[in-house]
């Protein structure tokens, strides 16, 4: 669940990203986040991922008031919210296997479970033969698949994706969307930022349009 109450978010000397916005996204929703380039979609996702705080207002994520919570609580909360960055943000000195397994290791999971889950997702991503390689040796599409694998491996409650299909071919996009729907069926809230209208048309879902500091909901958000 994501709830915003009169939230203002702005950087100094620039137009506001959010201006007195209130919004409620129920748990298990699937929605697109759209808006013109530079309007602040990525910043909004980063705010949902607790990387930046709003200048004013209240935010509740998964029933936790993020402005009143302690840092340790927010760290635990971050383990339930995953993000796929546009620039992937993989750790260059780790192998693909270790990059994907990292969220599980930070949750102190047993190494046999980590091994099983990581190998399964590597297989699904068609990267099982490249486990010992480092991210820099891979193509953009492969790096994106690793970033996606890392984001979903710990079965998050909220998945935020910033242009996740940019570097993927059509077949991979279809497979990825299937995966997102499967996760959504398991109760995960999914917000995908994109400016790919074809994709939105192909996979209809409620749309959050960020424009002039306001979020316009184009369609009723379904739980």
């Amino acid at each position: 669940m994501i709830q915003l109450d009169n939230v203002n978010l702005y950087y100094e000397q620039s137009s506001p990203i959010l201006s007195n916005v209130s919004l409620y996204i129920p748990q298990g929703s699937f929605c697109w986040l759209t808006g013109s380039s530079g309007v602040g979609k990525s910043t909004l996702l980063r705010m949902f991922h607790l990387e930046i705080k709003p200048n004013q207002g209240h935010i509740q994520l998964l029933d936790t008031d993020i402005l009143k919570s302690r840092r340790s609580t927010l760290c635990n909360l971050k383990q339930r919210i995953s993000i796929i960055y546009q620039d992937f943000k993989l750790i260059p000195n780790l192998t693909i296997y270790d990059n994907i397994a990292l969220p599980l290791r930070l949750q102190n999971m047993d190494e046999t479970i980590i091994n099983r889950w990581t190998n399964r997702i590597l297989q699904w991503m068609n990267l099982q033969n490249k486990t010992r390689l480092h991210p820099k040796t891979l193509s953009g599409g492969e790096q994106q698949r690793i970033a996606i694998a890392r984001a979903i491996i710990n079965r998050p409650d909220i998945l935020l994706a910033d242009e996740p299909t940019n570097a993927l071919d059509e077949e991979q996009v279809l497979r990825l969307m299937d995966l997102f729907y499967d996760l959504n069926d398991l109760g995960c809230t999914i917000i995908i930022a994109t400016h790919n209208d074809n994709l939105i048309r192909q996979f209809p879902a409620p749309k959050l349009k960020l424009e002039k500091g306001q979020i316009k909901v184009d369609d009723a958000i379904q739980t």
Binding site: R71, S72, C75, N76, K78, K89, I91, L102, L106
Partner: peptide, 15 residues
């Protein structure tokens, strides 16, 4: 850079 990524994946200050 690595610390930021780890932090965003949920690594605590203590870790």
């Amino acid at each position: 850079q690595t610390i930021e990524i780890l932090h965003n994946l949920g690594a605590s200050d203590h870790y």
